[in-house]
């Protein structure tokens, strides 16, 4: 682990460290990497990697059926305030509003993000 590698890793992880932070981080990472490297002592020739502990299950599949609109399933339509007269359109908009409530910035139901380069 060195400065160049740290910089590259920061870029990949979309993090930025100040110069002093970099020094400390480098030390910590070096210590951790040394700890990691102990596993290289083990002979893993012919050993199959174990990424998920559940290997003997069958396929987990979902039927190709549209899920109930969240508005109905989670009772969000009532929150739309339209009460009894809520139309299908209002349902959909209520669902959207609830799902996008945490968005930092919206415009006509679209997420607003900094300009991307295409």
């Amino acid at each position: 682990m060195d400065h160049i590698l740290l910089d590259r890793t920061c870029r990949l992880a979309e993090l930025e460290l100040s110069e002093s932070e970099k020094e400390n981080m480098l030390k910590d990472l070096e210590n951790m990497v040394t700890l990691f490297e102990t596993i290289s002592e083990l002979d893993t020739e012919g050993v199959a990697p174990l990424s998920g502990v559940l290997e003997d299950g069958g396929n987990v599949l979902r039927e190709d059926v549209v899920a109930e609109t969240a508005a109905k399933a989670e009772g969000l339509a009532a929150e739309a305030g339209a009460g009894l007269a809520a139309s299908a359109g209002a349902d959909v908009m209520a669902k959207r509003e609830a799902l996008l409530r945490n968005a930092p910035e919206l415009q006509d139901g679209l997420f607003v993000v900094p300009k991307t380069f295409s």
Binding site: V60, R62, E63, D64, A67, R96, L99, G109, L110
Partner: peptide, 24 residues
């Protein structure tokens, strides 16, 4: 209409998980 065919999973919300579509 934009963002009307979405749910917590395809919006990348925390704690959501994928389940494979058998028709796909």
């Amino acid at each position: 209409k934009p963002n009307t065919h979405v749910c917590p999973y395809c919006l990348g919300m925390p704690g959501t998980l994928p389940v494979l579509n058998e028709k796909a």
